[in-house]
Design a protein around this nucleic acid. Sequence first.
DNA 1: TTAATTCTGGACAGATTAGTCCGGAATCAC
DNA 2: GTGATTCCGGACTAATCTGTCCAGAATTAA
Lengths: 192, 192
Amino acid sequence: MARPKEFDGEAALGAAIALFSQHGFEGTSTEALLRAMKISRQSLYDTFGDKRQLYLAALRRYNQENVADFVRAMMAAPTPLTGVEYAFMAFIAKAVASDHPSCLGVSAICEFGRADAEIASIGDASAHTLAQALKTQLTAARAAGEMGTDVDVPTAAAFLGATLAGLKVSARAGADADTLRRVARLALKSLK
Amino acid sequence: MARPKEFDGEAALGAAIALFSQHGFEGTSTEALLRAMKISRQSLYDTFGDKRQLYLAALRRYNQENVADFVRAMMAAPTPLTGVEYAFMAFIAKAVASDHPSCLGVSAICEFGRADAEIASIGDASAHTLAQALKTQLTAARAAGEMGTDVDVPTAAAFLGATLAGLKVSARAGADADTLRRVARLALKSLK
DNA sequence: TTAATTCTGGACAGATTAGTCCGGAATCAC
DNA sequence: GTGATTCCGGACTAATCTGTCCAGAATTAA
């Protein structure tokens, strides 16, 4: 029949994620994308449609993986509340390992706010998934007696989401690992 | 001698701040700036240099005012720790009053990270000013017995800065005022 | 071999970008 | 009035942007 696709679409998308999260949508040119993704112009348009659709695909995959990583780390710990702490520490370790920490999800929120409905809904979806996982975990933490009964679970979930965003911004601004870890531990103190 | 400047440079800069914080540096065209600032092309280049210098001026003024507002609200309260709470509530009230909440400081961090030294140093300066004010306030809070003696002041200051950033991202993502207030109050709980 | 498909590289168009320049009107001090 | 300066609007350049298109080579199955 025909010649099959040669390049790895997922790897190319990963390169696009890296570029978009460093420079934003408007700050990333198609030319730069072609170089980073190591595909030709035609391949990009054939495979992903256009720059916007590529951005949407990148944002979707990044957000899904990001939330999945967090939840996976959270589940792996021995108790619910230590799971939350583990997840934060794993996130910080990953962020600091990168020489230029950045989050495409936060970048998209900052660049577009709620002005672009499609982009906003992608962010909403992953925020909702994360919030649900956190609420489940916090409910379990309360049942296990790890958490104060005076703490409202939905509020705590929203607080942890905001804390995560705050840590991402701090990391991108140049905060060192120790500071980030201390900040995260102090945040968790409010749940006890 | 000569005809004096007619337009209000500070007001024009305010319009530039609004536009840059909504769309970022790359997402804001000079054409859009001219319309919003209500000045002619020549006036913009004569007065501000170029687009980048205008952005730097906007970022400087925004960050200074932002920190000054926070510190002013913090000082106005009856006790140190309630001052921190007042400052957060005042910030939330202002953010929610805007139909499209945004922070140019956070936007600059997300768009440029530490890739642009001049932009990064502007962010560093205001972060340092805010941190110093917070440390002073928290030290006073500890002395007044409002805060637990086990809380490390520099860590708490970094935590409050990260919380502020997290609230800004949450507000831009569409969080309602009640959620933001509950999150802020929960954050402050960790200091007691 | 042939047909179908994907690849690369480059050319290309049309729009938009940042920044410069000019002409003429307006406003001030002298 | 005169000169100096600032205003505006628009023309303008040169570069860059996104997206389309084409030619030719490569790779697969029938």
